[in-house]
Amino acid sequence: MVVTGIDVGSRAIKIVQMDSSTLSVVNMKKTETTFNPKEQILKVMDGLNSDVYISTGYGRKLVQDVCGCEAITEILAHATGAKSLFPEANSVLDIGGQDTKAISLEKNGQVGKFEMNDRCAAGTGKFLEFMATSFQIPIEKFGDFALKGQPGLAINSMCTVFAESEATSLMAKGIPSEDIALALHLSVVKRSLSMLRRVSDVGPFVFSGGVAKNRCVVKMLEDELKSSVFVDEFPEMVGALGAATFAIYKFQGTRKNIAK
């Protein structure tokens, strides 16, 4: 049986297909969400073959409208995905395009306490993206750029707009832009960590979401946590993977403790 997890995030739609007998991933797909998510969902689902679909992410209800499948929240999806990749994990931090979540996992893999950022996108992927643009550096290279900076500088504002003006005035003072970029990364890390610590400070930690591809954020997280963190090769697919895994647990009735 082929199962499909569809994660409709604010920036990208991610699809993971798995074979339920081998528990292996057989297909992965990713596309922009754009301003017309429904059309994008239809497009990306076109030609997919699957016995079961499960949707997640902020657009999970849209997928339900399209194919009548079951939907689970991104909290459960990320917890399930992270636990299936790293069974020993106790805590998950996910920093995506427009939201951040921190989840503590119970021993059996079930979701314990969790937090999400509220109304504003400060401290999410969007924040870094905005800053990279104003530095005129491609977002994929922004982390490596920041890693060249000297530590010691602090950006005090978490608001995207104010942080940018803080960065601009630091630049005007002649401070190297690598240093400023490093400080911006640190502010994202600090904010995410305070959320993570509200729910759990027990490792091992899984770091997922698009921002987990940023080596600078990963390194700073590890420094702050004084522990290494697990990052999957495709961290932005963890939600979709979790949805697909959930489908397997659910329809096979196995690992009930996770999928419950």
């Binding site: 902020y58 689970i72 929240t73 991104e74 909290i75 459960l76 939201d99 079930q110 979701v111 314990g112 969790f114 999400m116 509220d118 109304r119 419950k260």
Partner: peptide, 19 residues
């Protein structure tokens, strides 16, 4: 009403947790 979407996700996740 601006936080309804976000609240919905948190509450659904909480319900998944206690189910």
């Amino acid at each position: 009403m601006e936080d309804v979407g976000q609240l919905k996700t948190r509450i659904e996740a909480f319900i998944e947790r206690i189910k």
